[in-house]
Deep mutational scan, measured.
Amino acid sequence: NKFNKEMRNAYWEIALLPNLNNQQKRAFIRSLYDDPSQSANLLAEAKKLNDAQA
């Protein structure tokens, strides 16, 4: 399933972002599970926040 693969990839990328705190990571990951079709958008948002907090 395409969404499962995208979701799994996004999950690990988000989990490993160095500048997000655990609460932020959990919120993004919860959103991934709520709507796997938004994986790419959620990952992009997480990366933006990660960069902003660098």
Rank of each mutant, 00 (worst) to 15 (best):
W12I: 06
N50S: 10
A10V: 09
N9K: 15
N41T: 11
E13S: 09
Q24R: 04
K25R: 07
Y33I: 13
K25C: 05
S39Q: 06
L20W: 00
S37M: 11
D35S: 06
A15M: 13
L20V: 06
R30E: 10
A15Y: 13
Y33M: 11
N41Q: 09
Q23S: 07
N21C: 11
W12C: 11
F3R: 15
E6W: 01
R26S: 15
N22T: 09
I14E: 00
K2G: 15
E13I: 14
Q23F: 10
Y33G: 04
S37V: 06
K5G: 03
R8M: 15
K5L: 01
M7D: 02
A46Y: 03
K2F: 13
Q38C: 04
L20I: 06
S37D: 04
D34M: 07
Y33Q: 06
S31I: 09
M7K: 01
N21P: 06
S39D: 02
R26P: 01
N9W: 14
N9D: 08
N9A: 14
A52F: 10
L20D: 00
L43I: 09
N50A: 07
L32V: 04
R8G: 04
A54D: 06
E45T: 12
W12T: 08
N50G: 03
N1M: 02
W12H: 12
M7R: 01
A40F: 06
L49M: 09
L43F: 02
E45I: 07
E13K: 12
N22S: 15
I29L: 11
L43D: 00
P36G: 05
A46H: 00
N22F: 15
N41Y: 14
L49P: 00
N41L: 08
K47R: 14
E45F: 09
S37Q: 13
A54T: 13
N22W: 12
N9M: 15
A10L: 06
P18R: 08
D35G: 02
D35A: 10
Q24F: 02
Q38F: 07
Q23L: 12
D34A: 08
N41E: 09
K25A: 02
F28A: 07
Q23W: 10
N50R: 01
S37I: 07
Q23M: 13
L17P: 00
L16C: 13
Y11L: 14
W12E: 05
A40H: 12
W12D: 04
F28M: 07
D51I: 06
P18V: 06
L43N: 02
N19W: 06
Q24W: 03
E6S: 03
N22V: 10
L16E: 12
D35K: 08
I14H: 00
R30L: 09
A52H: 11
A44T: 08
N50H: 03
A54E: 10
L16V: 09
L49N: 03
E45A: 05
N9I: 15
I14Y: 00
F3S: 15
A44K: 12
A54G: 07
A46V: 04
D35C: 07
Q53E: 07
I14C: 01
L42M: 12
R8E: 14
Q23T: 08
A46P: 00
R26L: 13
I29H: 15
L43Q: 08
K5T: 01
P36S: 04
L43Y: 03
A52P: 03
A52K: 11
P36W: 05
K48H: 11
L49I: 09
L49A: 10
R30F: 13
L32E: 00
F28Q: 02
P36N: 03
S37E: 07
L16Q: 13
L16F: 11
A52M: 13
S37R: 06
N22M: 08
K2E: 15
K48W: 07
N41F: 09
L17F: 09
L17G: 00
A44P: 02
F28P: 00
N21F: 05
L20Q: 00
A27Q: 10
